[in-house]
């Protein structure tokens, strides 16, 4: 508490500018300012500047609030997102449950419970896959580095470079035939891209790269007309990318998941 003999301080003067000065200091400050007309003029200008600022921003304050900023809209946005999220999670769990027999993926729960780092790793795989897809599916002259006619050589080479056995999944049930593949740079070592084509000339890619994290359910990622389903398993990230809707892509991704399942863990009911 300041007494009547406490000298006038900056805090008094600022409180004076703001009109928040305590009753008992007000008279003292007034007396001081009577003796210091320059200080009074300065404080008066500062007070005026605050007023101008408030005036300038008044229109913004009085503007109608855009609908998207209504709490209800934001809540609906969150719900919509989390509902979409849960649908994707449920679909992934369902297809794993259908294919996996053992149920260990179900036991891990939906991807919403996964640590952010692992989701980020899965998203990095999606993005790498999407970039590679965008680069090479439009390619007319050299869509692949090694063609399907040298499939054995291609897969031996890619297996060696990625450090895990790879076989090109058979996607003929979906109307897609292997065109070939290529080796690509990736953040951690190399990545492999296999390209498939259907009778209509639509192309689909599989993308594999070494990745952090052991296992996730499917993650869906859409960019324009193309969709990617990506997942992590056994230290590798996998992604299937095609100009298909999610529901059309899901069974293909499921088939690819089973094709890349490590020997011995296959449930045999696929």
């Amino acid at each position: 508490m300041k007494g009547p003999h406490t000298p006038i301080g900056e805090d008094d003067l600022q409180a004076y500018v703001d009109g928040r000065i305590a009753q008992d200091r007000f008279a003292l400050v007034e007396t001081y300012l009577d003796e210091q007309p320059e200080v009074r003029a300065r404080l008066e200008r500062e007070r005026r500047q605050v007023e101008v600022l408030r005036e300038q921003l008044r229109a913004k304050f009085e503007e109608p609030v855009p609908a998207r900023l209504r709490v209800s809209s934001i809540r609906a946005g969150r719900r919509r997102r989390s509902r979409g999220w849960m649908r994707a999670a449920a679909a992934a769990v369902l297809i794993f449950a259908l294919g996996c027999g053992s149920g260990w993926v179900l036991g891990r729960g939906a991807p919403i419970a996964l640590p952010a780092a692992r989701l980020a790793a899965a998203d990095a795989v999606s993005q790498g896959a999407m970039a590679a897809y965008r680069t090479y599916v439009v390619e007319v002259a050299h869509p692949v580095e090694v063609g399907a006619e040298h499939e054995k050589h291609l897969m031996t080479w890619l297996s060696k470079r990625l450090g895990r056995p790879l076989e090109a999944p058979d996607l003929s049930a979906f109307g897609y035939a292997l065109m070939g593949g290529r080796l690509l740079p990736a953040r951690r070592g190399a990545a492999a891209q296999l390209m498939y084509e259907n009778a209509g000339g639509e192309r689909l890619t599989l993308y594999v790269q070494a990745s952090d994290g052991t296992q996730t359910a499917f993650r869906f990622f859409r960019d324009g007309d193309a969709s990617t389903l990506a997942w992590l398993d056994q230290g590798f990230g996998f992604a299937v990318t095609a100009p298909l809707a999610r529901n059309a892509l899901l069974p293909i991704a499921e088939a690819v998941y089973h094709a890349f399942e490590p020997a011995g863990s296959a449930s045999g009911n696929g």
Partner: peptide, 9 residues
């Protein structure tokens, strides 16, 4: 909701 105008400002 009551704070949104001030937050926008």
């Amino acid at each position: 909701e009551g704070e949104i105008p001030a937050l926008r400002r």
